[in-house]
Nucleic acid binder design. Structure first.
Lengths: 231, 231
DNA sequence: ATGTTGTGGTCTGTCGACAATCCATGGCGT
DNA sequence: ACGCCATGGATTGTCGACAGACCACAACAT
């Protein structure tokens, strides 16, 4: 049986993306790219008017971002892009370290193939050579995403992805001029090599060190460590 | 200055709890206690009528639960209590293990006092002696919560708490008769002892073992590993 | 029989309006 | 000057109604 009702697929299926998701995506990318800086107020009526939708989808979209940890609500007062404290940044990176170490452990246990990691290392080297910061960022994210994916752990992946949203935001707010692209790129191949050799201790140590290096970088320039509100 | 406007606090502050939060709490406790079993459909209109509120707060409440990972939405079809797969249960416990090991590491680094842990160990022993399953559950949660809190890491705590929601649900769905209260209670004091002695390896090993024991317990009785929907 | 096409019911998705709350500002009495 | 209450504007919280999408079932044609 199973009478192949639908052959390969000649046309793309039309997706029905709810407004709240479109709104959420739009706002999220604005936050992650740094166009909406931490502390910025998000006013429902204003956004609703700007985007030509009613307030309901806006509210639900903002709630989605709240669960992403990018927005916070103060009852009857307003919603705003969550300010980043130095402590939060540090905690974010330390948790990321734990996630990636866990991924490495699982990869070593299952012996998953590391092709994807090699590929991204190459991509990062190319980006560093071309002095292309954006490409490097993309490849870096792809590398770590691949690392997590190889761990074959959906919950870990979801948690990591959620965490990485903030990493993304932090990176966008950093001063990119101060970063050495070649340093970043060269950090990764040794990790893959250690995994390849099944040297757990070394792989873990490298990942920890790599994460801590990133965390230590320029911790103060974009952070708002002030009263609940402001200037 | 700082003219102490509000002395200690004689009466509880009047909190304005939004309906969505009340609804979310109500539904959450129903899910966590097992009264709403995985797979149960949540119909907005029905809930709205039952609780005498409009659909908007219900929708937002359900979204909160969705971010808690307790509910899932299928567009234009319905929302339902997320079914638990064996894989999810295993992943949940393995992530919890990583969280608690991280907490132990941090506690050992900072040398935080362990009073709270001792207290909960005692509470668990009492509960086991009195054959009081509910009290044991409470004390067990309090123990692990204290462990996480001592790590002094807000993000870790938030992640752990979110994860523990599912643990709570899983425990509620288990067959409590099959569990030996004394075994559970006796698992914890050695962990505290190892922490006290600053024996990192042993503490971590004990925590891992403890978590894995729980995870291995009765993995099939309440799980729905079936097609996307149905009976 | 088998496949197709309506059709009705049951949900969720979206909207616009109204109510509740909070905050800042300014008037008023002392 | 100082403190207190009223008032107004801004923003979120809640509501009820309508529109859109999907599913199941039945009627029909082949």
């Amino acid at each position: 049986m199973t009478p192949v009702k639908a052959p390969p697929a000649f046309v793309a299926p039309i997706e029905n993306v709810p407004l709240r998701v479109q709104v959420a995506n739009s706002l999220r990318s604005a936050i992650l790219s740094g166009r909406l800086r931490p502390g910025t107020q998000l006013v429902e009526t204003a956004l609703a008017e700007q985007m030509n939708v009613s307030r309901a989808p806006i509210r639900e979209a903002i709630q989605i971002l709240e669960n992403d940890g990018l927005v916070e609500t103060i009852a009857y007062k307003g919603k705003r892009v969550k300010p980043l404290t130095a402590r939060e940044v540090a905690e974010t990176y330390s948790l990321r370290e734990v996630f990636e170490v866990m991924a490495a452990r699982r990869i070593l246990e299952t012996g998953a193939p590391l092709d994807a990691l090699h590929a991204q290392c190459a991509a990062m080297a190319d980006a560093a050579e071309a002095d292309d910061y954006d490409a490097l960022t993309v490849a870096d994210k792809a590398f770590h995403h691949a690392l997590i994916r190889l761990a074959d752990h959906d919950l870990l992946q979801a948690s990591w992805q959620n965490l990485y949203l903030r990493i993304h935001q932090i990176m966008a707010l950093r001063n990119r001029d101060e970063q050495n692209l070649h340093d970043i790129a060269s950090n990764h191949p040794p990790i893959v090599a250690a995994l390849e050799k099944r040297d757990a201790d070394r792989a873990i140590a490298l990942i920890s060190e790599h994460t801590r290096t990133l965390a230590a970088f320029d911790p103060a320039s974009f952070v708002n460590d002030l009263q609940p509100d402001d200037p």
